[in-house]
């Protein structure tokens, strides 16, 4: 018998390859990864932001990849984690939206439904121990209100006023919480998110300084161009580094 065989079974498993005698294994580490996505719900919509780097391990492999995907006229995704899994997600979501289009009955999926759809798929894959290695932020605007929800590779799904993925979960989320007010506007929030991206660029080695912001409002989805952050490297602590005996870095 040859050492490699295609596994039997249902569609999704067909491509999995197992070594004879060894247990079947699937994705155990992500390869090309995107880092942070930030999201904030505002009085008049939702804003999300990401940088545009995709790392291969610690190598800054790609530096102008969009990690946003428009799903419908009032819904977008911002995705962190494995980039090829993100591409797979796009294919899947696009196929679903095509099915909605051809039904041609005046109905489509709301941002809430899209979030649920993603959550079901992510949980399904995790139960097959073959997860799509992503954290997905769903941003939408429906019935006069912003929608901001998250799904991760385990299928954990929830909504919140502020959301972050990747390194942003550690460094960005407290800043987002501080900045958030129920009456904050989209325009204001864009400034806040850009500032936080700057902090992330300073501190997270998997983040670059070319970023993309997107908003979803009553007017629809607006995905901004990739722009370069204005950064300042002259801060004293940046230049001088840590003091002797200080446990912190800089």
């Amino acid at each position: 018998m040859s050492g490699l065989r295609l596994t039997e079974g249902s569609r999704g498993l067909a491509a999995s390859v197992a070594v004879e005698g060894a247990p079947l294994t699937r994705t155990q580490v992500p390869y090309v990864t995107g880092s942070s996505v930030l999201g904030m719900k505002c009085a008049d919509g939702v804003v999300i932001a990401c940088d545009t780097m995709a790392s291969y391990g610690t190598l800054a492999r790609f530096k102008s990849l969009s990690r946003m995907h428009q799903v419908s006229p009032n819904c977008i995704l911002g995705v962190g984690g494995d980039y090829s899994d993100f591409q797979q997600l796009q294919t899947m979501v696009d196929a679903e939206m095509t099915a909605q289009y051809v039904a041609n009955d005046g109905l489509t999926l709301s941002p809430k439904a899209i979030h649920s759809f993603l959550a079901r798929h992510m949980y399904h894959r995790r139960c097959k121990v073959d997860p799509l290695w992503n954290t997905v932020i769903v941003a939408g605007f429906d019935k006069g209100e912003g929608v901001l929800s998250l799904v991760d590779l385990f299928g954990t799904a929830f909504s919140s006023d502020v959301l972050a993925t990747g390194f942003g979960l550690h460094l960005g989320l407290p800043l987002l919480r501080n900045a958030h007010r129920p009456d904050i506007t989209v325009a204001e929030a864009k400034g806040v998110l850009e500032d936080i991206l700057k902090v992330l660029f300073y501190r997270d080695a998997r983040t670059n300084d070319v970023v993309q912001l997107a908003s979803v409002t009553a007017a629809g989805v607006e995905i901004g161009k990739m722009t370069k952050l204005k950064t300042e490297w002259g801060y004293k602590s940046f230049v001088e580094g840590a003091r002797v005996g200080d446990d912190s870095s800089w």
């Binding site: 039904a103 009955d105 109905l107 999926l109 709301s110 809430k112 439904a113 649920s116 759809f117 079901r120």
Partner: peptide, 12 residues
Amino acid sequence: KFMYDEPMPVGR
């Protein structure tokens, strides 16, 4: 309902 967290459209 499980998949989309919304009631199914009748026509569908």
